[in-house]
């Protein structure tokens, strides 16, 4: 089967699946709502509980989940190819730790600024991610011969540990309730209750996705080795730079919106590879779509399994994703 037909078939199937999940997810939750009432325009908004549950509580969550899941899964694929390391995740290069540190500082210093309806925590988180990205890039590019992926990896991992230590230190110094809030944020959460944070994160995410759209062929060559890629006429350094910055941007936007939700960035790409092979032209779009639906489903579990209590979505992704992935791994081999 040629690549176009396979692409069409696989991406089509994933699109249908993700679409179905996104349509279905907001209709279920801890409460039973009537869809007829939800979309009944004759009932005033102020007294339409069903519509408010659908449009204020559920739909923003589903959208946020899809965005965060897509961003983390795609960033995972890109970084695994860029670093030529199957263990790479969006959190490997210290970007998310930078974002988390920003959020921790906003929580513990009780910063209460806001911009366009976005509160201090996501803003500080995004700023932290950008700073971390800049530091890692500056370190990796400081070598004369372009961008060194081994320096990138080592610098990223070191920065990750360094920021994690700072996070623990900030939490340790924080007052008890603030420390609790900070820890809760680290577990991830998608109950954004409104569209402002989604709208704010969307442009960055679209920018990253646009970059991802031109990457797949390059990633195929890069994952075979930089020399091989250069021999095929690829400008390796600019390709690496584009991959690194777009993956970092996606990660930063995702973390600012949902917190550092683990496992998506590693499980989804590998799952997709197990299912459909390693060609990035198919893996990248399929992972993006599957990341979206996977996180939406995990969040559905997070908001219904123990309702009326919430389970942190990061806990669900690990609890569902881990065993599922292992099962698939064993079954395939």
């Amino acid at each position: 089967m040629n690549i176009r037909r396979r692409l069409l078939l696989v991406v089509g199937a994933f699109t249908i699946f993700t679409g179905a999940v996104m349509v279905w997810a907001p209709t279920v939750g801890s409460t039973d709502i009537s869809l007829a009432r939800t979309f009944d325009r004759s009932i005033p908004w102020e007294s339409n509980v069903d519509a408010q549950i659908f449009f204020v509580a559920r739909l923003p969550r589903v959208l946020a989940g899809a965005m965060v899941g897509a961003a983390l899964a795609a960033a995972g694929v890109v970084l695994q190819a860029l670093l030529r390391n199957p263990l790479a995740t969006p959190f490997t290069l210290g970007v998310s730790a930078g974002g988390s540190l920003g959020a921790m500082l906003a929580v513990t210093m009780n910063l209460e600024f806001g911009l366009l309806g976005v509160t201090s925590i996501p803003l500080a988180s995004f700023a932290g991610s950008l700073i971390a990205t800049a530091i890692v890039y500056a370190l990796a590019a400081s070598q004369r011969r372009g961008l060194s992926t081994s320096v990138l990896l080592l610098a990223g991992v070191t920065l990750n540990s360094f920021f994690s230590a700072l996070i623990l230190f900030v939490q340790y110094l924080a007052d008890f309730t603030e420390a609790l809030r900070a820890i809760r944020w680290m577990m991830g959460g998608l109950d954004v209750a409104g569209y402002a944070p989604i709208v704010a994160a969307l442009p960055f995410l679209l920018l990253a996705l646009a970059a991802f759209a031109v990457l797949p062929r390059t990633l195929n060559l890069l994952s075979a080795g930089t020399e091989a890629a250069a021999a095929k006429g690829i400008n390796v350094v600019s390709a690496q730079r584009l991959a690194f910055f777009s993956a970092s941007l996606a990660t930063g936007a995702a973390v600012s919106l949902g917190g550092p939700i683990g496992f998506i960035g590693i499980i989804v790409p590998h799952l997709v590879r197990l299912l459909i092979g390693a060609d990035h032209r198919i893996v990248l779009p399929a992972s993006t779509l599957f990341g979206a639906s996977f996180l939406v489903l995990c969040d559905l579990a997070a908001r219904t399994l123990m309702a009326p209590l919430e389970i942190p979505v990061g806990v669900v992704t690990a609890l569902i994703g881990g065993p599922f992935f292992l099962w698939l791994l064993v079954k395939r081999s």
Partner: peptide
């Protein structure tokens, strides 16, 4: 309104606030 939750502290979603009214 959260009488049925046998916990001192409960983390709840906006959906629960809307539903419990």
């Amino acid at each position: 309104v959260l009488d049925d939750i046998n916990q001192e502290s409960a983390q709840i979603s906006t959906e629960v606030v809307l539903a419990r009214a």
